[in-house]
Design a protein around this nucleic acid. Sequence first.
DNA 1: GTGATTCGCTACGACCCGTAGCGTAACGGG
DNA 2: CCCGTTACGCTACGGGTCGTAGCGAATCAC
Lengths: 208, 208
Amino acid sequence: MSENGTGAASRKGRPRSPAADDAILDATRALLADRGWAALTIGDVAVRAGVAKTTLYRRWASKQELVLAAVADMLDTLRLPDCGDLAADLESVVRQFAALLARPEMQTALMGLVADSTRDPELRLRVREVIVDPQKRLVVEGRAQARARGETTAANAIDVDLVFDIIAGTVVQHMLVSAEPAADVWVKKFVAFVGAGLMGTAEGLPED
Amino acid sequence: MSENGTGAASRKGRPRSPAADDAILDATRALLADRGWAALTIGDVAVRAGVAKTTLYRRWASKQELVLAAVADMLDTLRLPDCGDLAADLESVVRQFAALLARPEMQTALMGLVADSTRDPELRLRVREVIVDPQKRLVVEGRAQARARGETTAANAIDVDLVFDIIAGTVVQHMLVSAEPAADVWVKKFVAFVGAGLMGTAEGLPED
DNA sequence: GTGATTCGCTACGACCCGTAGCGTAACGGG
DNA sequence: CCCGTTACGCTACGGGTCGTAGCGAATCAC
């Protein structure tokens, strides 16, 4: 996340305070939650974290990198369970993702980063590295799991990139644009739709 | 979009220049395109439009309202054709939407507005009024059209809100987050997926 | 004309930016 | 144990943007 010298490079001198890292990232999340991306200022984060402004600039090059670090940990909590069938696994992941997206700091952070990244190729790359790609593994692993269980028809129909965009995109659109909670019925309807899409596009592929 | 007094309220006095409106909205789109949402400043827009900064503040209460007005017209160009079957209609709309989302000013404007709206309920409402709801009609009309053609099975499976979120969300995710163009093959694969999802979830509904 | 409103222009205090300089604090090595 | 090195807190700075106010000139309805 940050360029903290855990490597052999910065061994001499006073080490950076890990406590400061935690305080800063916590303060960032707190301010994101109750003021939002646009109103988030480095100075405010420093005050709230009880840290000098220069300490922040010493670790993160920009507001974007700071927020990226602040939300990266949360996203890594997503887990792929093995519920016994593909639909149940999918439903679990959708619920976990929806729970993350229900948090205000996550909402404003993700959209703010995406907004800035539309005109900043380097940031867009960082967003993919830190946020998108690590979560795409869930689809890859879910497909492998389904295949191992013998659900070959559905598994073979999974185009990882397309399925990922459908899941992530739809949940984001529903919760942040349509601004409705991911209620139980909604999740079930959506999961059923994706399942039907997979089975329906499986034609012409090797059967199990 | 703006509170321009086209009504009977502001009949006396010097009328607002429509030319200024056009110049301002054009300048807004141009600056959005080559600097992005975050770097868009009211002062820059005024200079580029050849207009005083106060003229801008007289018409739009905030940067968000200005951008909202600047992109509203573009979104209203979306048209629902009647290609003969639901899948073809859907494909056409997806292509039109993808073409809009390929424009840089549209990318940064939409994401910037959504980002701000996550912590601003009033703005979120405005976004829904101006952007989301007017486009949702495409799904409603598409369903009615399909039903009139006798495609009752698929039509009855259409949950307007869910289908809208799937279409809009997936295209946005693919183009702005995954940052890949909506190539021909991609559109066909996605449309096939949605079609399969509709037919698959049609079970238990009245047949045609 | 007369009153009302908009226009361009200039100026203002407030805020945030990112950086620099300073003295002090905390580490490792000779 | 001191010394080099780096991090830390603090203060201060020039530069930019914000949103508003005040002014004279311009342009409409009546």
